[in-house]
Design a binder for these strands. Structure first.
Lengths: 222, 222
DNA sequence: AATCAATAAAGAAATTTTTCTTTAAAAGAA
DNA sequence: TTCTTTTAAAGAAAAATTTCTTTATTGATT
């Protein structure tokens, strides 16, 4: 008993790993643009990305781009379709909570605007920060979150606070009716099944690296 | 043809997703410490973390912590074993390249020292930054990377530069003999199979959120 | 024109990961 | 004590994901 809450995954006709690979493909493809080549083949992409070429083919098939035998895929078409698929032309609004270095980095991350994410306000408890702007994004006190949210509802709440505060912030913004939480804090967030939670955990990445460095061998301690 | 380079995965006796879940467990378990409870059960963890409880049991079995029927797992023991497993007491050294907001955030991220990661120097091209310190971490010009590396070899190179520079930086540090690259830039990095590459891609996280927000339905454009 | 080589595409197979099922143990209640 | 309930643990089954295999197409070469 105590099963995982039945996730939206069931709706999904395409694998989550595939979705996560698309931005990678996109970045690679964009680095190709401007060069003379109009086409790129799956084996070519495979070479630099260290992904099996048939997997790339399969991934592309999900977004209905046909490749040409012996030639490959039309780069522009691929870029267009992936961007469409990822909803780059379907912008979502977000608030960000926690205006430390990471929060600031995310606000300044200038790709978001092209990727269909608009961070329209920031929140913090630090009164020094309240009232300032990061680029053009205004920083408010966290206590005004609900008010701001009601004025301008957003779909996504980005949490970049220290771990200890992450859950409290999450509870607050869930109560306001946020649809999705993008959690950059180290601690997992407890949320009802109706709320989408995506963790971008730095620590998970580190765990993986250290594991690979030790080549999957269990560490021996004295 | 053009298969994925045979990965170290084969060594791995335990699933990559399991490894990535450990830091999550750890964070949750630590939030429990200080409270009166000595034990925690898998179903309890499952409830907050939205992970199937048998999966948690299975994950824990990999690191040889025995639970007690009807009671659960000893919190302290779990914490200890996970930390051991993740190599928290087996520190690795790192250089970080790109001292923007993200780079600064990572240097300031004070959990790394407990997690067995020591960022011992930073590098940038910006002469304004060269010579300064972020907390106690000295910032050098990227052209001095090789020299510094030879003086103090590190296992991990953390790339937090803009996408365009990521590959050039990667090539440079691979040539120096870095073992692992932790890539925070949006663009994938091409590296020989001997080099460990871990991507912590912000864009992948966004892709996933937007997909879930659209409930797995393909976006329709006019 | 015929042959060769490279590639997409579709489907099958294999692998990996998750979920389900069963069993046994043990705490607490009756 | 006996019964009930909760839980870990192990193994089986299912599901998801990746990799392999085959086929067909097409551009290039002879």
């Amino acid at each position: 008993m105590n099963k995982t809450i039945p996730s939206r995954k069931k709706h999904s006709v395409l694998p989550a790993p595939t979705i996560r690979r698309f931005p990678l493909y996109l970045s690679f493809l964009k680095s190709l643009k401007g060069k003379e080549n109009v086409y790129v083949s799956a084996p070519d992409i495979a070479k630099t990305l260290r992904i099996d070429s048939t997997q790339i083919t399969k991934d592309f098939s999900f977004i209905k781009v046909a490749g040409k035998t012996k030639v490959g895929y039309e780069i522009n078409k691929l870029v267009q379709n992936i961007e469409k698929f990822l909803g780059y032309r379907d912008p979502k609004k977000a608030f960000i909570i926690g205006i430390g270095n990471l929060g600031t980095a995310l606000i300044k991350y200038n790709q978001f605007s092209q990727e269909g994410l608009e961070i329209i306000a920031g929140f913090d408890i630090d009164t020094e920060k309240v009232g300032t702007r990061v680029i053009s994004t205004k920083i408010y006190h966290i206590k005004n979150f609900k008010k701001r949210f009601n004025e301008t509802p957003v779909e996504i709440g980005i949490i970049t606070t220290p771990s200890e505060q992450a859950q409290i912030i999450a509870d607050t913004i869930i109560e306001c009716g946020i649809k999705a939480i993008w959690n950059f804090s180290a601690s997992p967030i407890s949320a009802p099944g109706t709320v989408i939670v995506e963790n971008t955990s730095i620590d998970s990445g580190l765990a993986m690296i250290k594991w690979k460095l030790n080549a999957g061998r269990p560490l021996i301690y004295k």
